[in-house]
């Protein structure tokens, strides 16, 4: 059955992709190499493409006429259901790539599972996103290996990034009411089922990179329920500024 929470589940898939896409976009003109400008833009574009189709699908399922832009530009941060990991403000390149890697290793598991969604649009996005994410993961894993086994400085920066980001990964596997309803509707998957695959992917690359997974006393939570860090409202304020200065305008 399509409930408000199922719509929220589909929109949340889009929220995550949009927020991470936006963060990557913020890196442009500041990449360490021109090749990396192209790669970051490319990944941001893939994520944005995923978000657009999923917002549109969320709007269709809801049946209230909401468009992709209604979801992106006319909701507050508390209505966004993206995990805390992706809204983390960009730090140095090690931070950007570690965030991307932790995300990509999760997203490949997610999309692989979602190919079996009974919703044709979600399954279609998943089928395409599996290929896109395989490339993103190859890219971010390569950087994790390179920076981890590059210089002392790059290794230290990458370890610092991992230490700062790890406690934001627990939320990715929490099972919320929206997950349960999406599973019941045949549209979604149980996030807990992604944990083992993710851990094994992440563990092997981090170990090749000579990095140590930190022991954390607490896993942060809240983003997926709309309780975000201070960073998201600031990000959205910028992203939504032109649209909101001209209510009702078409672009």
């Amino acid at each position: 059955m399509i409930t408000a929470l199922v719509v929220e589940y589909v929109a949340a898939l889009a929220d995550r992709a949009l927020v991470l896409s936006h963060r990557l976009t913020e890196c442009l003109t500041h990449a360490p190499e021109i090749e990396e400008e192209v790669a970051l833009a490319n990944i941001a574009l893939d994520l944005l493409g995923q978000a657009r189709v999923l917002y549109a699908r969320g709007g269709e399922l809801e049946g209230m006429g909401r468009t992709e832009d209604d979801f992106a530009y006319w909701r507050t941060d508390q209505e966004f259901r993206s995990p805390l990991l992706v809204e983390e403000p960009n730090g140095d390149f090690a931070h950007v790539m570690m965030r991307q890697f932790l995300h990509d290793a999760w997203a490949i598991e997610l999309w692989t599972s979602l190919r079996g969604s009974c919703d044709e649009t979600v399954a279609g996005v998943a089928a395409k996103a599996v290929n896109e994410t395989a490339y993103h993961l190859r890219h971010s894993s390569a950087w994790v290996r390179r920076l981890g086994d590059g210089t002392d400085e790059s290794h230290a920066r990458l370890q610092t990034a991992l230490d700062g980001l790890w406690w934001l990964t627990g939320e990715l596997f929490e099972v919320l009411a929206s997950d349960r309803q999406a599973v019941a509707a045949g549209i979604g998957i149980n996030p807990e089922s992604l944990r083992q695959g993710w851990l094994s992917r992440v563990g092997s690359v981090l170990s090749e990179a000579g990095l140590t997974i930190p022991t954390v006393s607490y896993m942060a939570t809240g983003g997926r329920s709309g309780s975000h860090s201070e960073a998201l409202s600031r990000m959205l304020a910028e992203m939504q500024s032109v649209a909101r200065a001209h209510p009702g305008a078409a672009w």
Binding site: A41, N42, L45, E68, D69, W251
Partner: peptide, 18 residues
């Protein structure tokens, strides 16, 4: 790029900068 007023415009501009 971070203020494009629609997702379609954002995607086009992103592709252009790329």
């Amino acid at each position: 790029l971070t203020r494009a007023p629609s997702l379609r415009r954002k995607a086009i501009l992103l592709a252009k900068v790329q």
